[in-house]
Simulated scan of single mutants.
Amino acid sequence: MKDLSKQIGLAIREHRIAKSITQERLALMCDIDRSYLGRIERGEVNITVVKLSQIAQILEISIKDLIP
């Protein structure tokens, strides 16, 4: 399960960087703390499906693009 969290976090980070969005800006848009977003991107926490969907919408990608 830990590997899945890391893969999802890495995908979020890659798409965020590709869109030139800072971690702080994405966190504000998702209404979460920047440090929590950092933990998501490092795969240290299990993200909810609702929050994953919200991040995908903000990044203008399909939720499928974030799940390996």
Rank of each mutant, 00 (worst) to 15 (best):
M1N: 00
L4T: 05
K6Y: 06
Q7P: 06
Q7G: 04
Q7W: 04
G9H: 03
G9E: 04
A11P: 03
R13K: 09
E14V: 15
H15Y: 12
R16P: 10
R16S: 03
R16M: 02
I17W: 05
A18M: 10
K19Y: 08
K19G: 04
S20Y: 14
S20G: 12
I21Q: 13
I21K: 13
Q23K: 07
Q23C: 03
E24T: 12
R25E: 15
L26G: 05
L26Y: 06
L26S: 04
L28D: 15
M29D: 15
M29N: 14
C30N: 07
C30F: 07
D31Y: 01
I32H: 02
I32Y: 01
I32Q: 01
D33T: 01
R34L: 08
R34Q: 13
R34S: 09
Y36S: 01
Y36G: 00
Y36P: 01
Y36C: 02
L37S: 02
G38K: 00
R39Q: 07
R39C: 02
E41G: 02
E41H: 01
R42K: 08
R42A: 10
R42V: 01
G43D: 04
G43T: 04
G43P: 11
G43Y: 07
G43L: 09
E44N: 08
E44K: 12
E44G: 09
V45N: 07
N46K: 12
T48E: 13
V50M: 15
I55H: 06
I55M: 11
A56T: 04
A56D: 07
A56C: 11
A56I: 10
A56Q: 11
A56S: 13
Q57E: 12
I58F: 15
I58M: 13
I58E: 09
I58A: 14
L59Y: 07
E60M: 12
I61R: 10
I61F: 15
I63C: 14
K64G: 06
K64I: 14
D65H: 11
L66S: 09
L66H: 05
L66W: 09
L66M: 12
I67D: 10
P68S: 05
